[in-house]
Amino acid sequence: MTADAAARVEQLRANLAAVHERIARGCAEAGRDPGAVTLVVVTKYFPASDVLLLHRLGVRHFGENRDQEAGEKFAEVRRALADAGEPDLTLHFIGQLQSNKAAHVAGYADVVESVDRAKLVTALAKGAHAADRRLQVLLQVSLDGAASRGGVLPEQADEMADVVAAQGLLDLRGVMAVAPLGADPDEAFARLHDVADGIRARHPDADWISAGMSGDLEAGLRHGATHLRVGTAILGSRPSLL
């Protein structure tokens, strides 16, 4: 390992430890078991080398939101893991997804967290069928009433959940949301929890709540988050795209 790689792995190790400590404290305050919370490390814009270093540090869930980047990066990562005889990983697609790219995403992602319309559900199901693989799905819920920015409105979530559940190769696992900019994350995630309860009453296996990022993960934990999507707090500021 080069000196730069050694320094990077120590930086990632320290940042991971700090985030795990925040999760432990947040769970203790909420009376929850930290073992029931999954950390999804968001690696968008960061290289495959960082993914492999994080995997070496025990991370198994990763998040990406750009199809071309994610597809190429994680094909490389999975080849490297297979060649080394290392365990596989779980890839979460977390960004807004165009229907014409859904089939491609269904071929390599394990979880799609941003499902918000019937056309996308149909496209993902076709892609899963073509790839002969199951796909876990979360409904993205809009908590600011602006579905144009991604997310199904809370009052339409039950209907969309039924649409997903009707597809044979899609497994409805729960809900995801981002706290609106400038909003109280506790209020936002409390509403998401209510939506999740309504869906789970109809679909008992849909028990995931993906809520909370680097700046508000504690609020997510207070309101039942089972999955946290953390990037900056672990990887640092995104690298320059120039």
Rank of each mutant, 00 (worst) to 15 (best):
R202H: 06
E86V: 12
G145A: 09
A219N: 05
D207M: 05
A118P: 05
A80K: 06
A211P: 02
Q140R: 06
A36R: 14
I209N: 09
V178F: 10
K44L: 08
N100Y: 03
G26Q: 09
P34C: 08
E113C: 09
G236C: 09
L57W: 11
M213I: 08
D116S: 08
V37C: 11
L181A: 14
R229Q: 10
E187I: 11
A80G: 04
R60Q: 11
A188T: 12
G95W: 06
R32Q: 12
T122Y: 00
W208D: 14
G58A: 14
T232L: 02
A6N: 13
S240W: 04
S99T: 15
T232H: 09
T232W: 03
V121L: 00
P180I: 07
A5W: 02
F93A: 05
A36T: 13
A6V: 13
A30D: 12
E86F: 05
D184N: 14
K119S: 13
D132V: 13
R22L: 03
V9S: 13
G198N: 12
V230R: 05
A183N: 04
R25Q: 15
E113G: 00
P204S: 14
A161M: 02
L57N: 12
L242R: 14
V195F: 03
I199N: 00
A6C: 08
A30Y: 11
Q140W: 01
I23F: 06
N15D: 02
R229G: 11
R222H: 09
L91G: 10
D197S: 12
V164H: 00
Q167R: 15
R13M: 03
G31V: 10
R173V: 06
A28Q: 14
H61S: 14
H61P: 07
A30M: 11
L221K: 09
D144C: 06
F74K: 02
E29W: 02
D144E: 09
L39H: 11
R79A: 15
D88T: 15
H61V: 09
G71M: 04
G107W: 00
V163M: 02
P34E: 02
R202P: 00
Q96P: 07
S210I: 12
G215L: 07
R202E: 04
V195K: 04
V175G: 09
Y45I: 09
V37P: 06
M160S: 00
E64N: 07
R32P: 13
V40D: 08
L89S: 10
V152W: 00
P154R: 12
G150N: 08
E64L: 05
L242P: 15
E10P: 03
A17H: 13
A165C: 01
A82D: 15
V42K: 03
S148N: 11
V40H: 10
R191T: 13
G107C: 01
A157S: 12
A183M: 04
E159G: 00
A177K: 07
V59E: 04
I23R: 11
F74P: 01
Q167L: 00
L52T: 11
A219F: 02
A70T: 03
Q140M: 03
T43A: 08
R222D: 10
E72Y: 01
A147V: 01
G215P: 02
L235G: 10
I209G: 10
H104N: 09
A179Q: 06
V77F: 05
R22G: 09
Y45T: 15
E86A: 15
W208I: 12
R60S: 12
P47C: 10
